[in-house]
């Protein structure tokens, strides 16, 4: 009984929070407001998508969460601790393929395990488990440029997850993939998400992808980047409890709502 209760507790607890977050870039001395007063909460195990027009600050937001960029005001909190630097409690997958080209698949995954497993043999074993998990067991000794884009992103996911982050940050990870590969990767990601019960922040500009995957969608409006809506998606996950049926009537309606929201989110300064 107690265990069930604590699990419910932790599932409902806030894993990641944006609190009055603002970001001003200085371009040739001129301040440029990129993000304004963003507050939102993401619970443990939630799959959250962030959508918005290009240039509205999605990448900036997730980069601040990763610790690659500093907030100008407010900040990002992971388990109530302010993020200041990158750390292994947050894994990141980039849109641009960013595997280290000079390392093999296995060595790429081993990179983030150096502190946890100083012993190389143990580290290798751990990495292999992750490579197998993303279904690339036979490619462990390949170099990234010998792999297709989809395979490279699988490795990138394995590499990000190997150190055991609490949050997986993904910045348009599948945008560069062809449609077929993308839909396979979407399913694959959901499987991993289910299995690990990890919190996922997933940026996309593809609304269909957002509705297909997310528990909750944050809608950003441009100039300056603001959070204009938080849309919980309550369509049941009909396919193996993973993806939703994108041809169902409910999907259609939510998709239209979301499109309308985005169309309304015009720049403030115009």
């Amino acid at each position: 009984m107690v265990t069930v209760e604590t699990q419910v507790q932790s599932n409902l607890s806030v894993k990641l929070a944006f609190r009055n977050l603002g970001k001003t870039f200085f371009v040739q001395g001129e301040p440029k407001l990129a993000l304004q007063n963003i507050s939102a909460e993401i619970r443990t195990g939630e799959f959250v998508s962030i959508v918005g027009a290009s240039g509205c600050g999605k990448s900036t937001l997730i980069r601040i969460a990763a610790g690659l960029e500093q907030a100008s005001e407010g900040g990002v909190y992971v388990e109530n601790k302010l993020v200041t630097l990158p750390g292994q409690d947050r894994g990141m997958v980039f849109q641009q393929f960013s595997l280290f080209p000079w390392l093999t698949v296995k060595e790429n995954v081993m990179f983030g395990l150096q502190d946890q497993y100083p012993d190389k043999v143990r580290r290798e074993e751990k990495a292999l488990v992750w490579v197998e998990r993303v279904g690339l067991g036979e490619f462990v000794d390949y170099y990234p440029n010998q792999l297709s884009g989809g395979m490279q992103q699988r490795v990138a996911i394995a590499r990000a997850l190997a150190p055991g982050p609490k949050v997986l940050l993904m910045d348009e990870p599948f945008a560069a993939l062809d449609a077929q590969t993308r839909s396979r990767m979407q399913r694959h990601l959901l499987e991993i998400w289910r299995e690990l019960n990890i919190t996922v922040v997933f940026i996309t500009h593809d609304l269909e992808e957002a509705v297909l995957l997310a528990d909750k969608i944050f809608v950003l409006a441009p100039k300056p980047g603001r959070l204009v809506a938080t849309l919980p998606i309550d369509i049941p996950r009909t396919k193996d409890d993973l993806e939703r049926d994108k041809y169902g009537p409910k999907f259609e309606r939510v998709f239209k709502d979301l499109s309308a929201l985005l169309a309304d989110s015009v720049p403030l300064d115009q």
Partner: peptide
């Protein structure tokens, strides 16, 4: 992007330089 990827994987300065 390689430096940033390494940072998110917990690399310190020395590791960034050497690895």
């Amino acid at each position: 992007r390689y430096v940033e990827a390494a940072l998110t994987l917990g690399a310190n300065r020395l590791r960034l330089l050497w690895q």
